[in-house]
Computed example of a mutant assay.
Amino acid sequence: MTDAVTTARLEVRPPVEADRARFVEFLCDPDFMVFYPVSYTEAQANAKFDHLLALCQEIPFGKQPVVERATGRVVGYTGADYLEVEGRTWLEWGYRLIPECRGLGYATEAGNALLAVARRTYEGELLAVIAPDNVASQKVIGKLGFTFWKQAPVLGDLCNLYTLLVQRP
């Protein structure tokens, strides 16, 4: 497991059991899950959180809570998780923030901080999957260094796919 990374405004750290209720709340909220095909049920959200706990034991830049340092509240998550696309298992980069924290640069700030961990610990290609009408997220993924690859169906929806080649220094 990796340690927390901090920026001027944020901390990105591995999830802990105390984060469960907040993550279940997020994953069951349609406003938080906008641009995802469905919101989770409580049971699905708990299973997803269990998956994230295990994932961060394996991948130092797995999906992790984004904590607003000024308030101490978890405002979303960023990082990578496994995703099957076109018969290949990818490390898929993603992020979600609570609605009131969108548009503040948090996704880019947290993403860059955790991508620095990826660059120290991983070599390979990362994938990002973004809804074509999610213009704000397309701008964020570009700021993180990803480039447009193509449009393809993912989980039943046509999505824009972006890639980033990560190489250790």
Rank of each mutant, 00 (worst) to 15 (best):
C56F: 15
N134W: 01
D133V: 01
F23H: 06
V24H: 08
L158Q: 11
P169T: 08
Y95W: 14
A107H: 06
P14L: 14
A45C: 07
H51G: 12
K150H: 09
V12I: 13
G62K: 12
I141S: 05
L164G: 12
R69S: 12
L91N: 08
F32V: 05
A70R: 05
Y77K: 00
Y106A: 07
Y40G: 00
Y95V: 07
A43M: 08
F26R: 02
A152D: 05
P65Y: 15
T2R: 15
T41S: 15
L97Q: 02
P169N: 09
L161Y: 10
I59G: 05
K48N: 10
A110S: 15
E125A: 13
Q151G: 00
V85S: 04
T7K: 01
A43N: 07
C101W: 13
V75L: 07
P153I: 01
W149G: 00
A47M: 03
A131W: 00
L97C: 11
L115G: 06
T108S: 14
L83G: 08
T7I: 00
V74Q: 09
Q138V: 03
A118K: 04
R96S: 13
D133K: 06
Y122I: 05
R96W: 08
E11H: 03
P65G: 14
D133H: 09
P153F: 11
V12G: 01
A54H: 14
D50G: 01
N46A: 10
G62T: 13
A152N: 01
N46M: 06
W93A: 13
E11S: 13
E100F: 04
N46S: 10
S39A: 15
K143N: 08
L144D: 12
Q64K: 13
S137F: 03
P60M: 08
C101K: 06
R69K: 14
R73N: 11
L165W: 06
T6Q: 14
E92A: 15
L27M: 06
G111L: 08
A136R: 10
E125Q: 12
V74D: 11
Q44D: 12
E84F: 07
M1K: 10
C159L: 02
